[in-house]
Design a protein around this nucleic acid. Sequence first.
DNA 1: CGGTTTTTGAGACCGAGTCTCAAATCCCTC
DNA 2: GAGGGATTTGAGACTCGGTCTCAAAAACCG
Lengths: 127, 127
Amino acid sequence: METEYETRPREAIARILRAEPRFFSAAELCARLDESGTPVSRATVYRTLERLAAKGEAALRLNDRGEATFMSCDNGHHHHAICRSCGRVEDVACGALDSFVDRLRSLHGFQLDEHSLEFHGKCRSCV
Amino acid sequence: METEYETRPREAIARILRAEPRFFSAAELCARLDESGTPVSRATVYRTLERLAAKGEAALRLNDRGEATFMSCDNGHHHHAICRSCGRVEDVACGALDSFVDRLRSLHGFQLDEHSLEFHGKCRSCV
DNA sequence: CGGTTTTTGAGACCGAGTCTCAAATCCCTC
DNA sequence: GAGGGATTTGAGACTCGGTCTCAAAAACCG
Ligand SMILES: [Zn+2]
Ligand SMILES: [Zn+2]
Ligand SMILES: [Zn+2]
Ligand SMILES: [Zn+2]
């Protein structure tokens, strides 16, 4: 079968992600891990992030350069408000979009089953 | 000064984009151009797409693998409904989101100035 | 401690996108 | 239509994020 081990690399990565509500690129994580004295190979960083995303414990986001970034994230459908200055992310409940979807179905004949929504701006401390 | 020339590569690319309301990757465009007998180098394809996007005549979208894709697109703020089966895209006017933004400003203290919204599903002909 | 399974790391590899610079093209003028 | 200066193009080297491989290391269990 497929038991799961708890390893130092995995714990170090989870610790960094949990400490800050923002998206990290794989490269950023590698750098942090090097600094903190528990270096982890790129391969392992990617594997761990992919695993967290699959379990729904991390959100995957492609930044504007197409690079994958990850953030510790609760399960359940919601959206993100991202500070373009410091990177801080706040969760945003998804309301008001259902009526939108209904209207689209009748207006365009599109059967929508998914959407993505993202806000950008400046957070309290960066204004 | 910086005059702009009208060249065969640019016209061939624009023609392909205008013919279908969907996003094309650079690789896809290269293939199409090869088939249609007017091959264009990758470098030129990228340059032309970047130029169209800068002029607001094309929309840039990163697909789920992080690859840049482009679509002939009108100016002005709106969103897209994308068919996950055939790729057809329909424009969606942006309403109902302003109230959202206002609520977020007071609720989170976030000063939002931009958002991205995208719908996925099946279009009329693909249901 | 063994023995078994899972995980890790170094580095080869891949593919999208960028850069370079000489050659080709465009366009304007005569 | 030929000449000439400005712009664009293309082949291919290059960069860099991400994946893959496989032997060595670590985790777990009794
Ligand atoms: Zn901020
Ligand atoms: Zn939503
Ligand atoms: Zn369709
Ligand atoms: Zn909008």
